[in-house]
Simulated assay, not measured.
Amino acid sequence: MSSSEVIKAGQLEIRYLVDGTATGGLGVFELTLPPGANVPPPHSHRDNEEFFYVVEGSVTYSVDAETRELQPGEWMSTPRGSVHGFRNGGSQTARALVVLTPDIGAAYFREVAAVVNVGGPPDRAALVAVMSRYGLTPAAPPQAAAAG
């Protein structure tokens, strides 16, 4: 069953096509990503695998140590526990289909939207709390090179 609801979290738009939370199955959503939009910090999923397929535009996508510039028709897969992130550094809006199994559901994105849409910088602690409830863990910031 598809939905016409569009969840706006900052500049990102999420439109669920299949919300798998009712069955514990896979979920599918369309992600619209304007150029230079704020995106989630690199993170990992404790319980979910993710598949990211670019429909239009280009998206820089990273999984662990691999980073690629994905064009329409290209994809990357993120195993459970792998650190991943994405951004649109291009000049046109990008759209991607994202598949999660099992799904974290539209409710996760509604909660994230409630934190990031208040205006001003998002409350990082509140955002991390939402992520944690759904089994997502922000990656540790990269370590600075040791001073010699």
Score class of each variant (00 low, 15 high):
Asp19Val: 04
Ala144Leu: 14
Ala144Gly: 12
Ala129Cys: 11
Gly85Val: 01
Phe109Leu: 00
Ala22Gly: 09
Ser82Met: 05
Val83Pro: 04
Gly120Ala: 06
Pro122Lys: 13
Leu12Asp: 04
Gly135Gln: 10
Met131Phe: 14
Ser2Ala: 15
Asn48Met: 09
Ser2His: 12
Ala126Gln: 12
Ala94Met: 01
Asp47Cys: 04
Pro141His: 10
His43Met: 08
Ser62Gln: 14
Asp64Gln: 10
Thr21Val: 15
Ser58Trp: 03
Ser62Tyr: 06
Gly36Tyr: 06
Thr67Lys: 14
Glu5Arg: 10
Gly148Tyr: 08
Ser2Lys: 14
Pro141Arg: 00
Ala114Ile: 02
Arg15Cys: 10
Ser82Tyr: 04
Asn88Pro: 05
Val6Arg: 09
Phe109Ile: 03
Ser82Asp: 03
Ala114Tyr: 04
Ala113Glu: 00
Gly148Lys: 12
Thr32Ile: 12
Leu136Asn: 06
Leu31Lys: 08
Tyr53Phe: 15
Thr78Ala: 12
Ser58Gln: 15
Glu56Met: 03
Thr101Tyr: 13
Val99Trp: 10
Leu100Gln: 15
Val128Gln: 11
Val39Lys: 04
Ser2Trp: 09
Ala114Val: 09
Leu33Met: 13
Tyr134Cys: 09
Pro41Gln: 07
Gly89Asn: 15
Gly10Asp: 06
Tyr61Leu: 10
Gly20Thr: 04
Asp64Ile: 04
Ala107Glu: 15
Val63Asp: 02
Gly135Lys: 08
Lys8Asp: 03
Gly135His: 06
Lys8Trp: 05
Phe86Tyr: 15
Glu5Tyr: 00
Gly27Cys: 09
Ala144Ser: 14
Pro35Asn: 05
Phe52Met: 00
Gly135Trp: 07
Glu66Ala: 13
Gly135Glu: 05
Pro42Ile: 01
Ser58Asn: 09
Gly85Trp: 05
Gln92Trp: 02
Leu136Tyr: 11
Ser2Gly: 13
Glu66Tyr: 11
Thr32Pro: 00
Leu17Thr: 03
Gln71Glu: 06
Met131Trp: 00
Ala139His: 10
His84Pro: 00
Phe86Asn: 08
Arg95Val: 03
Pro142Met: 06
Gly20Ala: 02
Gly85Asn: 07
Gly90Thr: 10
Met76Lys: 05
Pro42Ala: 05
Asp123Ile: 04
Glu111Asp: 14
Arg46Trp: 00
Asn117Trp: 03
Ala147Leu: 13
Thr23Leu: 10
Phe51Trp: 13
Arg46Lys: 15
Gly105Glu: 02
Arg133Cys: 08
Asp123Val: 09
Ser91Lys: 14
Leu127Val: 08
Ile14Cys: 01
Ala65Leu: 14
Pro138Ile: 01
Thr21Trp: 03
Thr23Gln: 07
Gly57Glu: 05
Gly25Pro: 12
Pro138Glu: 12
Ile14Thr: 07
Arg68Trp: 08
Pro141Ser: 01
Gly25Cys: 08
Arg95Phe: 02
Glu66Phe: 00
Glu30His: 09
Ala96Met: 04
Glu74Gly: 00
Gly90Glu: 01
Tyr16Cys: 01
Val6Gln: 00
Val98Pro: 02
Lys8Ser: 14
Pro34Asp: 11
Val130Asn: 06
Asp103Leu: 03
Tyr108Phe: 15
Asn38Thr: 13
Ala129His: 06
Asp47Lys: 14
Ala94Gly: 01
Thr137Glu: 13
Thr21Ser: 08
Ala65Trp: 11
Glu56Asp: 13
Glu69Thr: 13
Pro121Ile: 02
Val112Leu: 08
Val39His: 07
Thr78Pro: 07
Pro138Val: 00
Gly85Glu: 05
Glu66Met: 11
Tyr16Trp: 14
Ser58Val: 11
Lys8Glu: 08
